[in-house]
Amino acid sequence: MAEKIYAGVKVQVDQEGYLIDTNQWTKEIAKEIAKEEGFELTETHFAIIKFIREKVAKGEALTLRSIGKSGATDIKGFYQLFPGAPLKKATKCAGVPKPSSCI
């Protein structure tokens, strides 16, 4: 565990940089995490983040396929918005735990 300061707020993160307490999440924190990952958040990013946070809050499994069906973006768009490892990066920005999904 480590401490980080995002947008002037001290937060706890795990070894890979995921927020420990999802309730500490704010849009400003998300923007700074994204900056660290090398991209800027747009409205579409936030629509995806909102979908992810709601899905996780309900305790539902998060899959690439579900994001493709979220209405916020399609899978190709998702790969472009969060380049590299989209599900990992999107969940990090969304302040939720790293997903344990294989699909």
């Binding site: 690439l64 396929r65 579900s66 493709g68 399609d74 899978i75 190709k76 998702f78 989209p86 699909i103």
Partner: peptide, 17 residues
């Protein structure tokens, strides 16, 4: 379990490059 049919799965793989 949200595992897609083969054609959709291939589309997903292709969508990611």
């Amino acid at each position: 379990l949200d595992i897609p049919p083969v054609d959709e799965f291939l589309e997903m793989i292709k969508a990611g490059g």
